[in-house]
């Protein structure tokens, strides 16, 4: 069964077609890469899927249910989580709090229950902490639980952002350039983390990345975007030998 399907999706910004006729189907458990030169519209695709932008054309479906036009937080509730190109953490809050905020949607005690510290508050807070610690354990970050997010090393901050996305309990995870700014060792560690998410939790993942080592190392299928349109699709080996793709990245050879 496919988790995500984009059907002829497009968006216009005042006459400029940032993304046009975008089609993509992702099956459950797949790990797919979205690549393309700078300015090709990759992040725009993420913004369309997560509801930051509303597509002017086409339909986006999550497990067969259309989601376009919905507010971003409701799309999260339905099971799509993301990370950002430039890390966006709740910097002054602790690692644990970062995760618990993502779990807010699964908690139900009322403001009054919180104000008066009724039984439901204690129960749900306890469950939420336990669940957050579980996720941190998987990411090997439990030691950071009570530290402020902005005090973490860079690689750990990237990992925290993924862990926070996982805390929303997603069906589909969108990673926007997770390896940006990382050194080779950190990238290796990141690749392990992404594989872990796939193997341990079985989460379907779509990622944007420029680091070809990472893309070729873990992605099963690639979609190449250029000038807002799909240029090529296929398995990584085919893609890197595709003359159209090489041309898009390097320019036409003489």
């Amino acid at each position: 069964m496919n988790v995500l399907s984009c059907e002829n999706v497009g968006i216009n910004f005042g006459g400029l077609k940032a993304v046009n006729d975008f089609n993509l189907t992702i099956d459950e458990g797949e790990l797919i890469g979205l690549i393309g030169p700078n300015g090709a519209g990759k992040t725009t695709v993420f913004n369309l899927i997560t509801g930051v932008y509303t597509p002017t054309e086409g339909t986006i479906k999550l497990q067969g249910v259309p989601i376009n036009g919905q507010k971003p937080h409701l799309i999260v509730h339905q099971g799509i989580a993301r990370t950002f190109q430039n890390i966006r953490l709740f910097s002054h809050l602790t690692v644990l709090e970062n995760l618990k905020i993502a779990q807010n949607k699964d908690m139900s005690y009322s403001p009054f229950s919180g104000m008066l510290r009724l039984g439901k508050y204690w129960q749900e807070e306890k469950e939420s902490t336990e669940k957050a610690i579980e996720i941190l354990d998987v990411f090997d970050m439990t030691k950071f639980a009570y530290q402020a997010a902005n005090s973490l090393p860079y690689g750990a901050q990237r990992k925290l952002e993924i862990a926070r996305a996982m805390a929303t309990d997603p069906k589909l995870l969108l990673l926007d350039e997770p390896a940006a700014g990382m050194n080779p060792t950190e990238t290796d560690e990141l690749m392990d983390t992404i594989m872990l998410i796939r193997n341990e939790f079985g989460i379907t993942t779509l990622l944007i990345e420029h680091d070809m080592r990472l893309v070729l190392g873990i992605c099963e299928r690639l979609t190449v975007l250029n000038y807002g349109e799909i240029l090529a699709e296929g398995n990584p080996r085919e893609i890197i030998n595709d003359p159209k793709v090489i041309e898009a990245y390097l320019g036409k050879g003489e």
């Binding site: 997560t50 930051v52 971003p72 937080h73 999260v76 509730h77 989580a81 993301r82 950002f84 966006r88 953490l89 709740f90 905020i101 993502a102 807010n104 949607k105 926070r164 996305a165 805390a167 929303t168």
Partner: peptide, 8 residues
């Protein structure tokens, strides 16, 4: 923005 995309 991060808050929104964490489901808040």
């Amino acid at each position: 923005i991060a808050s929104e995309s964490s489901g808040i």
